[in-house]
Simulated scan of single mutants.
Amino acid sequence: MATLLHIDSSARTGGSDEHRFGSHSRRLTRRFVKTWSECRPADRVIYRDVSADCPAPVTGRWIHAAFTKAEDREPWMREVLAESDRLVDELLSADIILVGVPMYNFGAPAQFKAYIDNIVRVGRTFGFDKNRSGAPYWPMVPPGRTLVLLSSRGDFGYGPGGRLEAQNHVEPGIKTPFAYIGITDVHSIAIEFDEFADERLLTSIDLAESQVDELAGRLNVRVGQGQAELGKGV
Rank of each mutant, 00 (worst) to 15 (best):
A2E: 06
T3F: 14
S10G: 00
G14M: 02
G15R: 00
E18N: 07
E18A: 03
S23D: 02
H24Y: 15
H24V: 06
R26N: 15
R27E: 04
R27N: 11
L28P: 03
T29L: 05
S37I: 01
E38H: 12
C39L: 09
R40M: 14
R40K: 04
D43H: 09
D43M: 12
R44W: 06
V45L: 11
V45W: 10
I46T: 04
S51D: 09
A52W: 02
D53C: 11
P55I: 07
A56E: 12
A56T: 05
P57F: 07
T59A: 05
G60R: 13
W62K: 00
I63S: 11
F67P: 00
T68S: 08
E71A: 14
E71V: 09
E71S: 14
D72P: 01
E74R: 07
P75C: 12
R78S: 11
E79R: 13
V80D: 09
L81I: 07
D85S: 11
R86P: 04
L87N: 01
V88Q: 04
D89M: 07
E90S: 13
S93I: 03
I96H: 13
I96K: 04
I96C: 12
L98K: 04
V99M: 12
V99E: 01
A108Q: 14
A108W: 03
A108K: 00
P109R: 01
P109I: 00
F112R: 01
A114F: 08
Y115F: 13
Y115N: 05
N118T: 01
N118P: 02
N118L: 06
I119W: 12
I119K: 12
V120R: 03
V120N: 08
R121W: 10
V122E: 09
V122C: 13
F126Y: 15
D129R: 01
S133C: 09
W138G: 08
W138P: 02
P139W: 06
V141G: 09
P142V: 08
P143Q: 08
G144Q: 12
R145K: 15
L149N: 00
R153V: 00
G154Y: 03
R163I: 13
R163Q: 08
Q167I: 06
N168Y: 08
V170A: 03
T176Q: 12
P177S: 06
P177T: 11
G182K: 11
I183T: 02
T184C: 06
T184Y: 05
E192V: 14
E192Y: 06
E192L: 05
D194C: 02
A197T: 12
D198P: 04
R200C: 06
R200L: 05
L202C: 00
S204H: 02
L207R: 15
L207S: 13
L207E: 14
A208L: 04
E214R: 14
G217V: 07
V221I: 14
V221M: 08
R222D: 09
G226Q: 11
Q227L: 15
Q227A: 10
A228N: 02
E229N: 09
G233L: 02
